[in-house]
Design a protein around this nucleic acid. Sequence first.
DNA 1: GTCTATAGCCCGATAGAC
DNA 2: GTCTATCGGGCTATAGAC
Lengths: 255, 255
Amino acid sequence: MAEEQPQESGKQSKAEQTRALILQTALDLFREKGYEETTMRAIAEKAGVSLGNAYYYFRSKEHLIQAFYGNTHEDHQRLSARILTEERSLKARLLGVMRTKLESIEPYHQFAGILFKTAADPNSPLNPFSPESSPVRQASTELFAQVLKDSRVKVPPDLQQELPNLLWMYHMGIVLFWIHDQSPRRWRTHRLVEHTVDIVAKLITLASLAIMKPVRTRTLRLLADLRKEIEPLPAETSTASDETESKTVNPVSTP
Amino acid sequence: MAEEQPQESGKQSKAEQTRALILQTALDLFREKGYEETTMRAIAEKAGVSLGNAYYYFRSKEHLIQAFYGNTHEDHQRLSARILTEERSLKARLLGVMRTKLESIEPYHQFAGILFKTAADPNSPLNPFSPESSPVRQASTELFAQVLKDSRVKVPPDLQQELPNLLWMYHMGIVLFWIHDQSPRRWRTHRLVEHTVDIVAKLITLASLAIMKPVRTRTLRLLADLRKEIEPLPAETSTASDETESKTVNPVSTP
DNA sequence: GTCTATAGCCCGATAGAC
DNA sequence: GTCTATCGGGCTATAGAC
């Protein structure tokens, strides 16, 4: 993973420049013609480097997308800063952050499909739950922690700890909808966000009430369990039997 | 879409046999080695047909997946039949159907990522919201309509009409979780299903109450809006400006 | 209408020289 | 770090057998 080490001040090494050039060229081309239609050869050519060199910096075409995640997240963060300093109500903060999210990714909508494509493959290092994506995911989750932190809502500690993750999941759901949203200027997604942010905010307030403690505890425990590392089954072959206990017939997912 | 027309009784035309042979071979290979590692050449060879012939029946490698959807759904439906005749409570019916779903797709878990990958790309004809997938999606939604229909719950008409779609969406969410679930025998997904089916059933009962009419109406209207055809912007020609309206048409009847 | 055989394009990815 | 050369495989095309 050719990772650049930041130099002193604004100085960039040749490698960093080349890497950035290739990435920028790729994103431009993706935006112009979409992901599938953009060939690595075209990217290399337009960037003025050889095909092999492009692969020197990005192990695969999909890895360009990983870099892209980082990019948009930075944009998102930058765009969110103002809202997070100005607003204090949870609803306004969450709404603002969700809107800036949509704003930051809008230019890339036409090749968003590929994003989710890679994102949905658990075997891909690019999927948002993979270790490789962990840094961006954490940074992104951190943003939602901020949404909470300086808001006026009073959230009990047990929930407080889990909530940023839940909000991140919520935001992923919205992105999923957005990807499939072909309406002009994505008004449907905006509509959905407005409606659901309202619900989410109310739900948080509701779940924070003392009376809700039992339900809250039960649900949080479920979440914790679901996240727990795989427990080997009772004293038997610790078969991480994940793969193919092929039964027989039957196929997968339903459209 | 080469759709086979059922012949008299068990008779299959040569073409149907060849088609089925190729598909079955492909699925076997996918299960054995995964999607990416299975080449069209290998499928053709193992099936004893020429490469060209494989492409004669399936326009692309991805199109094999579309056929595969149909297969799984049939399996799911078959496996669900018993539960749907025996159970009457909504919760039991839904739980049963969700479990058979997981059962039907389990053998393909290891390459499920790939399936969903292609399926999730809005530009792909294989994505579950695309027109090409409409038949399977409708059939699948219909199954959830059945879950409701003969259950004891009393659901108001406005909700009744929308509910199968919502249940289908719910089930897609579960599948998405399942895809990323690496726990033995997918116990996490099962756990999640048990917990959420309970919630869903309660929510349906709750939402059906007369007092909830206003909230229900508001939410249903949002859903209707989100599905609506793109409204041309004020005083503009009806430019379908962004192509592909994935209008998730109401596949359900259940009036 | 089904099917074989084969030749070839295109493009993602890799090897190895410089 | 950068290049050239080459491979593997999805996909197309074509010509012809049955």
